[in-house]
Design a binder for these strands. Sequence first.
DNA 1: TTGCTGGGTCTGTCAATGAGACCTAGCCTT
DNA 2: AAGGCTAGGTCTCATTGACAGACCCAGCAA
Lengths: 156, 156
Amino acid sequence: MRPTALDWSVDNCTVARAMEILGEKWTLVVLREVFSGVRRFDDMRVRTGIPRQVLTNRLAGLVEQGVLRREPYQEPGSRIRHEYRLTTKGFDLWPVLVAVLAWGDRYLADPEGPPLSVGHRDCGADVRVELHCTAGHPVTNPRDIIPRPGPGAHPR
Amino acid sequence: MRPTALDWSVDNCTVARAMEILGEKWTLVVLREVFSGVRRFDDMRVRTGIPRQVLTNRLAGLVEQGVLRREPYQEPGSRIRHEYRLTTKGFDLWPVLVAVLAWGDRYLADPEGPPLSVGHRDCGADVRVELHCTAGHPVTNPRDIIPRPGPGAHPR
DNA sequence: TTGCTGGGTCTGTCAATGAGACCTAGCCTT
DNA sequence: AAGGCTAGGTCTCATTGACAGACCCAGCAA
């Protein structure tokens, strides 16, 4: 009999681990801000309405996870401050953010349209997420995907 | 001066709205289960260790949001039960899930590898998320993407 | 000296999570 | 008919997290 999902267990699930970081309330909103070029505490707070304490926690958590780094900077006439920038690990969250954005835009936007879009730097056209297999075929129908146990699966 | 992120506001942000659904603890794990073919309450509970109450809430919430539907079924010799299946809106979350999975696999997997992979039904090759612009160019570098206000942006 | 600003901390309230016990409808066995 | 099993839940309660609002603090400027 072909193995089904019920034959392996999930205690080392990477989705759960990723969501422990990304799934906390506001985390992805913070990341969207940083991706949009907003790097400073107060700018984020004002734009998003995230409670101070929560924003403090999220930024600290993301720095701890290596998604953001905290960089000192100094504007003329001001004392030293810090801003938050993406690390490589953070930049690699683009597909996640774009995928969430696309889904949200399709199903949850106001009638007037979504407030944010993403464009290709070279040509300006909108950017979308697509699924492709490593053999190069585009995967258009969700039903063309089969989940299966990977190398780290624990049989039960 | 070119508009920056600071010039528009985000109270209608679709990322925040999407994360209100997807960002609750366990939601994406539940979805991964359903995508993997696990449709029944107890199977999910046993495989994932989600507390009963929370699983009840998540399933109800996802049904309410139209991501899952609750379908009656009857096995011979049993009474009528219900299982949870993806709606179209739910299927459209595939890119999100694959993107999260890919990121988690890259940065958070055990040394032995990730427990779950996804393959293309036709050729069996692994499926990945890729960013493309609508003009067809692949977008490989996160820095080639520029965020910008969309039609529903609220100027401040 | 006083005030402003960015980036916080402290406190108290309320909602959500998580662990564990308990419930229930229908089927099965005795 | 009595009792047991099972899937899919409630109920209770301790712990944690979110949120609002007040307060703090270092350095600059008037």
